[in-house]
Amino acid sequence: MTGQELLDSLGKLFGPKIQHRIEFRGETTYTISPGDLREVAKFCRDELSFDYLIDITSIDNFGEEPRFEIVYELYSMTLAVHLRLKLRLSEEIGAVNTVSDIWPTANWHEREIYDMMGIKFSGHPDLRRILMWDGYPFFPLRKEFPLEGLPSEMPDVAFTKSAPLEGGPFVTQPSTATAKDREPRARPPEL
């Protein structure tokens, strides 16, 4: 079975469950609903030989509904095929099923997403923060969290303060203008 046939067979079997499919420069992205995640993931691993979960990432589309997006990057070692699964998640639900029993590597990826974005993974065996300390009150990669941070205090564990931004953040302006216009300057966010 070639990679394309593989992906087509997934498309056929889960046709109604795939809400959206994108082919871009040879990369296939399927959007599924959060409820179907475990079923699709198991099928991908057992039937389609996607034995390697490369990464899980999360996106905060602040101001949109549903707010969060979780992206699973799958790879088949035997067939050398990539597949990207996406699902969208509203803030009210705020939890998605774990895949850490399907791909053990998901354990720490899911902990990192929980730590940085505050999305919970139901069924995860050990859902603790992985980078910040237990008891840190914020989720730093959410869009409403300021770049300079917020003050917090946990006696004998850790504290945080706001960093002085000195006119920053210093952002490159993406455009076709000259390097002088594009270079990093203090561009406070228009809020």
């Binding site: 910040m132 730093p140 770049l147 300079e148 941070g149 945080t160 303060k161 960093a163 000195e166 953040p169």
Partner: peptide, 12 residues
């Protein structure tokens, strides 16, 4: 000074 890390995670 905290260097290039003007960040929530780094002591300045």
């Amino acid at each position: 000074t905290g260097g290039m890390y003007r960040s929530y995670a780094v002591l300045q």
